[in-house]
C-alpha cells in the first residue's frame, strides 16, 4: 500500500467526475414497478432518524422540565423555544399554539439535517459501504429535492387549512376569484375573475416551490463544493506521492493539498452560517405565509 493510495477516494470511482456523480446518487429502492414509485431510503431514513432524535430531545426535556432553576441543558432548550416563540410572535398575530410548535419542528429538523453536511463527505457513503455494503448513500436529506418539496407542500396544505379556517370555505374560494383586483361592478368582477384566479394559483404555487428550491439549492450547491474540495485533497495527494513525481509536481501537490485544507475549513465555517440561516429562513417564511393566509386581502 503506497502513500498515494491513502488519497484515493473511500468510495466512488477513480476519476473526479465518477467520484462526484457517485456521491450524488441515492440509495434508491423501487416499490413495485419503480419509476415514480421509488424511495430514496437514505434521505428518508436519515431525516426520520434525525427528526426523532431532535424533536425527541425537546420532548424528553419537556417531560422533565421544571419551573424552578433550570439546568444548563434545560436552559438551552428553553432558549431555543423562547427564541422561536419570539420570532413567531413578531410575525404571526393570532393563536400561536399550533404555529409555534410547527416553527420549532421546522427549524430543529432542517437545522439538524443541514448540520449533517459538516461531516466529511466520504463519511456517510463510506460507513454505508463498509458496514452495510450499500453502494450509494447520501447523508444529507436536504440535498434531496423530494425532502424539501415534501416539507414545503405540507406548508402549502397548512396555508390552505389556515385560510379556510380564517375565512370559511366559501370565503376562501371567493377570495381566489376576487383578489388582488377588486371591483364593484358585477360585470367587471366576472372579467377580472380569471386573472385573479390565475394570479392566486401562481402565488400559492410559488411559495412552496421557492421554499423547497431555496433550501435544496443552497444545500446541494454546498455539497458539490465540498465534493470539489475533497477532490482537491485527493489530487494534491496523488501529485505528492504518485509514481514519477518530480519536485515541481510535488510542490504543486502540496499547494493543492494546503489549498484544500484552507478551502475546506473556510467553507465549513461558512456553512455553519448557511445551515442555520436556511433553517431559519424556511421557518420564518412558513410563519409569514401562514400569517398571510389568515389575513383577508
Amino acid at each position: 500500500m503506497s502513500a498515494a493510495s491513502l488519497f484515493l477516494p473511500l468510495v466512488g470511482g477513480d476519476s473526479p467526475s465518477e467520484y462526484v456523480s457517485h456521491h450524488l446518487k441515492h440509495f434508491a429502492q423501487p416499490i413495485g414497478q419503480g419509476g415514480f414509485w421509488t424511495v430514496h431510503v437514505d434521505s428518508l431514513l436519515v431525516s426520520v432518524v434525525i427528526g426523532i432524535l431532535g424533536i425527541g430531545l425537546f420532548w424528553w426535556m419537556g417531560r422533565k422540565a421544571t419551573a424552578g432553576v433550570p439546568g444548563k441543558f434545560q436552559a438551552f432548550i428553553e432558549l431555543a423555544v423562547e427564541f422561536i416563540d419570539g420570532q413567531v410572535r413578531d410575525v404571526f398575530h393570532g393563536d400561536r399554539r399550533f404555529v409555534a410548535p410547527l416553527a420549532l419542528t421546522i427549524f430543529v429538523w432542517i437545522f439538524l439535517m443541514n448540520a449533517l453536511k459538516l461531516l466529511p463527505v466520504d463519511l456517510g457513503p463510506g460507513v454505508a459501504k463498509g458496514a452495510f455494503g450499500l453502494e450509494y448513500f447520501r447523508l444529507v436529506p436536504t440535498t434531496d429535492l423530494n425532502i424539501t418539496l415534501a416539507m414545503s407542500t405540507t406548508v402549502l396544505l397548512l396555508m390552505f387549512a389556515f385560510a379556510i379556517k380564517a375565512k370559511g370555505g366559501f370565503g376562501f374560494v371567493a377570495e381566489l376569484f376576487t383578489a388582488p383586483f377588486h371591483a364593484h361592478n358585477p360585470l367587471v368582477k366576472v372579467v377580472l375573475a380569471p386573472a385573479n384566479f390565475g394570479l392566486n394559483v401562481i402565488e400559492y404555487l410559488s411559495k412552496p416551490v421557492s421554499l423547497a428550491m431555496r433550501l435544496f439549492g443552497n444545500m446541494y450547491a454546498g455539497e458539490l463544493v465540498f465534493l470539489l474540495i475533497a477532490l482537491l485533497y485527493m489530487a494534491g495527494g496523488q501529485f505528492l506521492f504518485g509514481d514519477g513525481a518530480t519536485l515541481g509536481s510535488q510542490a504543486g501537490g502540496l499547494l493543492a493539498f494546503l489549498g484544500g485544507v484552507l478551502a475546506g475549513a473556510g467553507w465549513s465555517i461558512f456553512h455553519i452560517l448557511v445551515i442555520s440561516l436556511q433553517a431559519f429562513i424556511f421557518m420564518i417564511l412558513t410563519v409569514v405565509y401562514l400569517s398571510m393566509a389568515t389575513e383577508a386581502h
Partner: peptide
C-alpha cells in the same frame, strides 16, 4: 421526484403533530 416525497410528507406531518401535541 418520487415516492420519497410521499414518505417525507407523512413523516413531516407526524412530526408536526407530535411537536404540537407533546413537545411544545
Amino acid at each position: 421526484l418520487n415516492a420519497t416525497f410521499i414518505g417525507q410528507f407523512i413523516a413531516f406531518a407526524i412530526l408536526i403533530w407530535f411537536s404540537y401535541r407533546f413537545v411544545w
